[in-house]
Protein backbone atom coordinates (compact mmCIF):
# COMPACT_ATOMS: atom_id res chain seq x y z
CA UNK A 1 0.00 0.00 0.00
CA UNK A 2 1.67 3.23 -1.08
CA UNK A 3 0.60 6.13 1.05
CA UNK A 4 1.67 8.76 -1.45
CA UNK A 5 -0.60 7.45 -4.14
CA UNK A 6 -3.68 9.09 -2.68
CA UNK A 7 -4.59 12.63 -3.72
CA UNK A 8 -3.77 13.91 -0.26
CA UNK A 9 0.01 13.58 -0.29
CA UNK A 10 2.37 11.64 1.96
CA UNK A 11 0.49 11.91 5.22
CA UNK A 12 -1.29 9.17 7.11
CA UNK A 13 -4.46 8.59 5.05
CA UNK A 14 -7.74 9.22 6.80
CA UNK A 15 -11.34 8.28 6.22
CA UNK A 16 -12.61 9.67 2.92
CA UNK A 17 -9.23 9.46 1.15
CA UNK A 18 -9.06 7.65 -2.17
CA UNK A 19 -6.26 5.06 -1.97
CA UNK A 20 -4.80 2.38 -4.23
CA UNK A 21 -6.24 -0.84 -2.90
CA UNK A 22 -5.93 -3.69 -5.39
CA UNK A 23 -3.06 -4.49 -7.73
CA UNK A 24 -3.89 -5.11 -11.39
CA UNK A 25 -2.94 -8.77 -11.07
CA UNK A 26 -5.31 -9.19 -8.14
CA UNK A 27 -8.16 -7.53 -10.02
CA UNK A 28 -7.60 -9.63 -13.14
CA UNK A 29 -7.43 -12.81 -11.10
CA UNK A 30 -10.49 -11.86 -9.06
CA UNK A 31 -12.78 -11.42 -12.09
CA UNK A 32 -11.32 -14.41 -13.92
CA UNK A 33 -12.14 -16.47 -10.86
CA UNK A 34 -15.60 -14.96 -10.50
CA UNK A 35 -16.53 -16.31 -13.93
CA UNK A 36 -14.47 -19.51 -13.85
CA UNK A 37 -15.58 -20.66 -10.41
CA UNK A 38 -19.24 -19.97 -11.17
CA UNK A 39 -19.04 -21.99 -14.40
CA UNK A 40 -17.16 -24.80 -12.66
CA UNK A 41 -19.62 -24.84 -9.76
CA UNK A 42 -22.68 -24.98 -12.02
CA UNK A 43 -21.22 -27.56 -14.40
CA UNK A 44 -19.92 -29.48 -11.37
CA UNK A 45 -23.43 -29.74 -9.91
CA UNK A 46 -24.60 -31.16 -13.25
CA UNK A 47 -21.81 -33.75 -13.12
CA UNK A 48 -22.89 -34.63 -9.58
CA UNK A 49 -26.46 -35.09 -10.89
CA UNK A 50 -25.17 -38.17 -12.75
CA UNK A 51 -24.45 -39.92 -9.44
CA UNK A 52 -25.70 -37.82 -6.51
CA UNK A 53 -24.09 -39.95 -3.80
CA UNK A 54 -20.74 -39.49 -2.03
CA UNK A 55 -18.51 -42.11 -0.43
CA UNK A 56 -15.23 -42.47 1.46
CA UNK A 57 -12.44 -44.76 0.31
CA UNK A 58 -11.35 -46.19 -3.03
CA UNK A 59 -14.69 -47.47 -4.30
CA UNK A 60 -18.36 -46.58 -3.93
CA UNK A 61 -21.46 -47.18 -6.02
CA UNK A 62 -25.19 -47.83 -5.57
CA UNK A 63 -24.59 -50.91 -3.44
CA UNK A 64 -22.17 -49.27 -1.02
CA UNK A 65 -22.78 -47.08 2.01
CA UNK A 66 -22.81 -43.39 1.08
CA UNK A 67 -22.08 -40.66 3.64
CA UNK A 68 -24.18 -38.21 1.64
CA UNK A 69 -27.19 -39.00 -0.55
CA UNK A 70 -28.33 -35.86 -2.38
CA UNK A 71 -31.09 -37.60 -4.34
CA UNK A 72 -32.40 -41.04 -5.19
CA UNK A 73 -30.59 -42.56 -8.14
CA UNK A 74 -33.50 -41.84 -10.50
CA UNK A 75 -33.97 -38.25 -9.34
CA UNK A 76 -32.13 -35.07 -10.24
CA UNK A 77 -30.39 -33.54 -7.23
CA UNK A 78 -29.80 -30.05 -8.61
CA UNK A 79 -32.47 -28.25 -10.68
CA UNK A 80 -31.77 -26.68 -14.07
CA UNK A 81 -31.30 -23.11 -12.81
CA UNK A 82 -28.31 -24.28 -10.77
CA UNK A 83 -26.57 -26.20 -13.54
CA UNK A 84 -24.69 -25.75 -16.81
CA UNK A 85 -26.27 -26.71 -19.11
CA UNK A 86 -29.85 -26.33 -17.85
CA UNK A 87 -31.06 -29.64 -19.29
CA UNK A 88 -29.41 -32.84 -18.17
CA UNK A 89 -26.20 -33.53 -20.06
CA UNK A 90 -23.25 -35.12 -18.29
CA UNK A 91 -21.17 -34.94 -21.48
CA UNK A 92 -21.70 -31.20 -22.01
CA UNK A 93 -21.15 -30.41 -18.32
CA UNK A 94 -17.84 -32.26 -18.50
CA UNK A 95 -16.82 -30.22 -21.55
CA UNK A 96 -17.47 -26.96 -19.65
CA UNK A 97 -15.93 -28.18 -16.41
CA UNK A 98 -12.72 -29.49 -17.97
CA UNK A 99 -12.20 -26.53 -20.33
CA UNK A 100 -12.58 -24.01 -17.49
CA UNK A 101 -10.36 -26.16 -15.28
CA UNK A 102 -7.45 -25.08 -17.47
CA UNK A 103 -8.37 -21.42 -16.90
CA UNK A 104 -8.61 -21.98 -13.14
CA UNK A 105 -5.28 -23.80 -12.89
CA UNK A 106 -3.32 -21.47 -15.19
CA UNK A 107 -4.71 -18.29 -13.59
CA UNK A 108 -4.11 -19.67 -10.08
CA UNK A 109 -0.54 -20.66 -10.90
CA UNK A 110 0.24 -17.32 -12.53
CA UNK A 111 -1.23 -15.35 -9.61
CA UNK A 112 0.54 -17.47 -7.02
CA UNK A 113 3.92 -17.06 -8.74
CA UNK A 114 3.39 -13.31 -9.18
CA UNK A 115 2.17 -12.90 -5.61
CA UNK A 116 5.00 -14.86 -4.05
CA UNK A 117 7.81 -13.45 -6.20
CA UNK A 118 6.65 -9.86 -5.77
CA UNK A 119 6.05 -10.38 -2.07
CA UNK A 120 2.47 -9.21 -2.54
CA UNK A 121 0.90 -12.21 -0.84
CA UNK A 122 3.32 -12.01 2.10
CA UNK A 123 2.60 -8.28 2.48
CA UNK A 124 -1.18 -8.54 2.35
CA UNK A 125 -1.97 -11.94 3.82
CA UNK A 126 0.78 -12.63 6.35
CA UNK A 127 -0.84 -13.12 9.72
CA UNK A 128 1.33 -11.71 12.53
CA UNK A 129 1.85 -13.39 15.86
CA UNK A 130 -0.42 -10.85 17.55
CA UNK A 131 -3.15 -11.47 15.00
CA UNK A 132 -2.97 -15.22 15.63
CA UNK A 133 -3.78 -14.72 19.33
CA UNK A 134 -7.24 -16.04 20.20
CA UNK A 135 -8.05 -12.76 21.93
CA UNK A 136 -7.32 -10.80 18.78
CA UNK A 137 -9.34 -13.16 16.58
CA UNK A 138 -12.22 -13.17 19.05
CA UNK A 139 -12.17 -9.38 19.17
CA UNK A 140 -12.38 -9.23 15.34
CA UNK A 141 -15.24 -11.73 15.30
CA UNK A 142 -17.18 -9.67 17.85
CA UNK A 143 -16.54 -6.46 15.87
CA UNK A 144 -17.72 -8.16 12.67
CA UNK A 145 -20.81 -9.51 14.41
CA UNK A 146 -21.63 -5.97 15.52
CA UNK A 147 -21.05 -4.92 11.87
CA UNK A 148 -18.32 -2.54 13.07
CA UNK A 149 -15.67 -2.48 10.36
CA UNK A 150 -12.30 -0.69 10.50
CA UNK A 151 -12.24 2.91 9.29
CA UNK A 152 -9.57 5.34 8.16
CA UNK A 153 -5.95 4.10 8.07
CA UNK A 154 -6.97 0.91 9.92
CA UNK A 155 -8.95 -0.10 6.82
CA UNK A 156 -5.79 -0.01 4.69
CA UNK A 157 -4.83 -3.52 5.71
CA UNK A 158 -6.89 -6.67 5.79
CA UNK A 159 -8.01 -7.71 9.24
CA UNK A 160 -7.25 -11.20 10.50
CA UNK A 161 -10.62 -12.63 9.43
CA UNK A 162 -10.10 -11.35 5.89
CA UNK A 163 -6.57 -12.75 5.84
CA UNK A 164 -7.86 -16.12 7.02
CA UNK A 165 -10.65 -16.11 4.43
CA UNK A 166 -8.54 -15.01 1.45
CA UNK A 167 -5.55 -17.10 2.53
CA UNK A 168 -7.86 -20.06 3.03
CA UNK A 169 -9.20 -19.75 -0.52
CA UNK A 170 -5.74 -19.23 -2.01
CA UNK A 171 -3.79 -21.84 -0.05
CA UNK A 172 -6.41 -24.41 0.98
CA UNK A 173 -9.64 -24.43 -1.01
CA UNK A 174 -8.41 -23.88 -4.57
CA UNK A 175 -5.39 -26.21 -4.20
CA UNK A 176 -7.68 -28.84 -2.62
CA UNK A 177 -10.15 -28.50 -5.49
CA UNK A 178 -7.44 -28.82 -8.13
CA UNK A 179 -5.68 -31.76 -6.43
CA UNK A 180 -8.88 -33.69 -5.69
CA UNK A 181 -10.13 -33.01 -9.22
CA UNK A 182 -6.93 -34.42 -10.72
CA UNK A 183 -7.10 -37.40 -8.34
CA UNK A 184 -10.39 -38.44 -9.95
CA UNK A 185 -8.67 -39.00 -13.31
CA UNK A 186 -7.94 -42.72 -13.84
CA UNK A 187 -5.03 -41.85 -16.16
CA UNK A 188 -3.34 -39.50 -13.67
CA UNK A 189 -3.94 -41.99 -10.85
CA UNK A 190 -1.78 -44.46 -12.78
CA UNK A 191 0.97 -41.86 -13.22
CA UNK A 192 0.74 -40.30 -9.75
CA UNK A 193 -0.60 -42.85 -7.26
CA UNK A 194 0.51 -40.60 -4.37
CA UNK A 195 -2.05 -38.02 -5.46
CA UNK A 196 -5.03 -40.27 -4.88
CA UNK A 197 -3.37 -41.62 -1.71
CA UNK A 198 -3.30 -38.07 -0.38
CA UNK A 199 -7.08 -38.30 -0.13
CA UNK A 200 -7.31 -42.00 0.78
CA UNK A 201 -8.95 -43.12 -2.46
CA UNK A 202 -10.77 -41.83 -5.52
CA UNK A 203 -14.17 -41.69 -3.85
CA UNK A 204 -12.64 -39.79 -0.93
CA UNK A 205 -11.12 -37.36 -3.43
CA UNK A 206 -14.57 -36.92 -4.97
CA UNK A 207 -16.03 -36.20 -1.54
CA UNK A 208 -13.25 -33.72 -0.71
CA UNK A 209 -13.87 -32.06 -4.09
CA UNK A 210 -17.52 -31.54 -3.17
CA UNK A 211 -16.79 -30.35 0.39
CA UNK A 212 -14.17 -27.86 -0.85
CA UNK A 213 -16.62 -26.59 -3.49
CA UNK A 214 -19.31 -26.09 -0.84
CA UNK A 215 -16.77 -24.29 1.37
CA UNK A 216 -16.06 -22.01 -1.59
CA UNK A 217 -19.81 -21.36 -1.93
CA UNK A 218 -19.89 -20.48 1.77
CA UNK A 219 -16.95 -18.11 1.24
CA UNK A 220 -18.80 -16.56 -1.71
CA UNK A 221 -21.97 -15.97 0.34
CA UNK A 222 -20.08 -14.36 3.24
CA UNK A 223 -17.98 -12.38 0.73
CA UNK A 224 -21.16 -11.04 -0.93
CA UNK A 225 -22.69 -10.16 2.44
CA UNK A 226 -19.53 -8.32 3.51
CA UNK A 227 -19.32 -6.40 0.21
CA UNK A 228 -22.95 -5.32 0.59
CA UNK A 229 -22.46 -4.28 4.22
CA UNK A 230 -19.17 -2.49 3.59
CA UNK A 231 -20.55 -0.43 0.68
CA UNK A 232 -20.96 -2.30 -2.59
CA UNK A 233 -20.19 0.65 -4.89
CA UNK A 234 -16.87 1.46 -3.21
CA UNK A 235 -15.93 -2.23 -2.96
CA UNK A 236 -16.77 -3.09 -6.56
CA UNK A 237 -15.06 0.06 -7.82
CA UNK A 238 -11.90 -0.84 -5.94
CA UNK A 239 -11.90 -4.32 -7.50
CA UNK A 240 -12.48 -2.83 -10.97
CA UNK A 241 -10.25 0.27 -10.91
CA UNK A 242 -8.01 -0.39 -7.93
CA UNK A 243 -9.10 2.82 -6.13
CA UNK A 244 -10.78 2.54 -2.78
CA UNK A 245 -12.26 5.27 -0.58
CA UNK A 246 -11.26 4.69 3.01
CA UNK A 247 -14.35 4.45 5.20
CA UNK A 248 -14.92 7.31 7.64
CA UNK A 249 -15.52 7.01 11.34
CA UNK A 250 -19.14 7.43 12.38
CA UNK A 251 -18.27 10.77 13.98
CA UNK A 252 -16.10 12.06 11.12
CA UNK A 253 -17.51 14.84 8.99
CA UNK A 254 -17.98 13.84 5.32
Amino acid sequence: MSLDSGPSGPREPVGGDLVRRHALATRLWHWTNAITILVMLMSGLMILNAHPRLYWGHYGSDHDAAWLVLADMDDIAFPGWMTIPTDYSLADARLWHFAFAWVLVLAFTAYLIWGLVRGHIARRLHITRIEWSPRHILHDIVEHAKLKFPTGAAALDYNVLQKLAYGGVLFVLIPALIASGLAMSPALDAAWPWLVDLFGGRQSARSVHFIAAMALVLFFLVHMAMVLLAGPVNEVRSMLTGWYRLPRDKGEAP
Binding site: A50, D62, L90, R94
Partner: peptide, 8 residues
Protein backbone atom coordinates in the same frame (compact mmCIF):
# COMPACT_ATOMS: atom_id res chain seq x y z
CA UNK B 1 -14.27 -45.57 -12.68
CA UNK B 2 -17.59 -44.71 -14.27
CA UNK B 3 -17.95 -41.36 -16.04
CA UNK B 4 -20.95 -40.82 -13.75
CA UNK B 5 -18.65 -40.66 -10.75
CA UNK B 6 -18.89 -44.03 -9.00
CA UNK B 7 -16.08 -46.59 -8.68
CA UNK B 8 -15.99 -50.35 -8.14
Amino acid sequence: DCVEGWSA
